[in-house]
Design a protein around this nucleic acid. Structure first.
Length: 364
DNA sequence: CACTCGTGGCG
DNA sequence: TCGCCAAGAGT
């Protein structure tokens, strides 16, 4: 670690641990995958499968967005062996709308690894968990701590934010990551090893929020340097964002009675393995109509039925939507016809649901 | 190691 | 309407 990195005073560490754990006893969020501190103190432990599933879903995703998906997954695949036996297509269908679809592919691969190589039992140590697909530094530490009470250093965006404010770290993210992780390591403790990281994350999510932090309710306020000497919501500092470019393209909704033509995207990459309607490549410049029509799946009486705009992580997309009725003899060896009444059974990302809705084909 | 990879909610 | 960003991982 850098010689200029901050080291918290031992006294501060002790007082903050106590204050935050006490706060957690009264303010822990009651989450479906969580065992609350009272039950935990009575020896109750969470289901490793449920904790793992929730942690994967929660990567870069809000609790609100995850809850329904978590319940649906547990209902359909109650254990890791059920999930491992499922076709990947089914997993992607249930994941559709949650985003970052590599997580779903890795989830499935991880379940199969656990069943095939670990007898259906999740490894307990951080190092072993770390080798599984979809489990990185954060998730390995989180599972080891939350499930097995191991004193790991669990560092997510919440913990980074709390540390950056508590110690008023001026170095911007992502450069500050090692420093913030080092700071957090000083607070790790064996006593209540499972509750500590969850307390930190709950504080970050409900009190020490990115915007409008509720410092007056914070159990650590007396020790928080950012609150004393500056505006806490200015931390963690970040590099200025790069502008998000816009890409343009066209999507083709080919209908036959109450069905639409769908196809599968390549297994990896953007929206990998998900379903889509045929569409053009996405370019930085909008192309002329004649060129756009070259990428239609078939010559037909295409009508423009509007456009949709969708924002991805590193670019925005504007798709013009074209719709046509397939002629009687149209044959295709690519894709399949999907009933517009059963589109919930397809692995449609939100972008494609927008497209189908705009074309009037997203019915229930 | 910089880049890729979704989506919805919220001020 | 728009920028911000959430329990990160893989390459």
């Amino acid at each position: 670690m850098d010689t200029d990195s901050i080291i918290p005073l031992p006294k501060t560490v002790q007082v903050c641990r106590k204050a935050l754990l006490d706060w957690y006893d009264g303010h822990a969020r009651d989450l479906p995958w969580r065992v609350l501190p009272v039950a935990r103190s009575e020896g109750q432990r969470p289901d490793p499968y449920g904790v793992w599933l929730s942690e994967i879903m929660l990567q870069q995703t809000s609790v609100t967005a995850v809850k329904d998906y978590y319940a649906a997954f547990l209902d359909r695949w109650p254990g890791v062996e059920h999930l491992a036996a499922a076709p990947l297509e089914d997993v992607l269908t249930c994941w559709a709308g949650l985003g970052y679809y590599a997580r779903a592919r890795n989830l499935h691969a991880c379940a199969q690894r656990v069943v095939d190589q670990h007898g259906g039992v999740f490894p307990q140590t951080e190092a072993e968990l770390r080798t599984l697909p979809g489990i990185g530094d954060y998730t390995a530490a989180a599972i080891a701590a939350i499930v097995h009470d191991l004193p790991t250093n669990v560092v997510d965006g919440n913990v980074e934010r709390v540390m950056a404010r508590l110690h008023q770290v001026e170095r911007p993210l992502p450069d500050a990551k090692p420093e913030l992780k080092s700071l957090a390591a000083h607070y790790v403790l064996e006593y209540r090893a499972a509750d500590w990281p969850q307390a930190l994350m709950d504080l970050g999510a409900t009190i020490c929020r990115p915007k409008n932090p509720k410092c007056d309710l914070c159990p650590l306020e007396r020790h928080c340097l950012a609150t004393k000497t500056g505006k806490p919501d200015a931390y963690p500092r970040r590099r200025p964002k790069v502008a998000r470019p816009v890409r343009y393209g066209a999507a083709f909704v080919l209908c036959r009675d109450d069905t639409v033509l769908l196809r599968r995207r390549p297994a990896k990459g953007l929206l990998g393995g998900m379903s889509e309607v045929p569409n053009s490549s996405w370019q930085a410049q909008k192309e002329v109509t004649e060129t756009v029509m070259m990428s239609a799946p078939v010559e037909a009486n295409w009508h423009n039925v509007g456009s949709v705009r969708h924002v991805f992580t590193h670019f925005a997309l504007e798709l013009d939507i074209y719709k046509a009725e397939a002629s009687e003899g149209y044959q295709t060896n690519e894709g399949w016809w999907a009933s517009c009444h059963k589109l919930d059974e397809e692995a449609l990302p939100s972008l494609m649901r927008k497209v189908l809705a705009q074309a009037g084909m997203l019915l229930k």
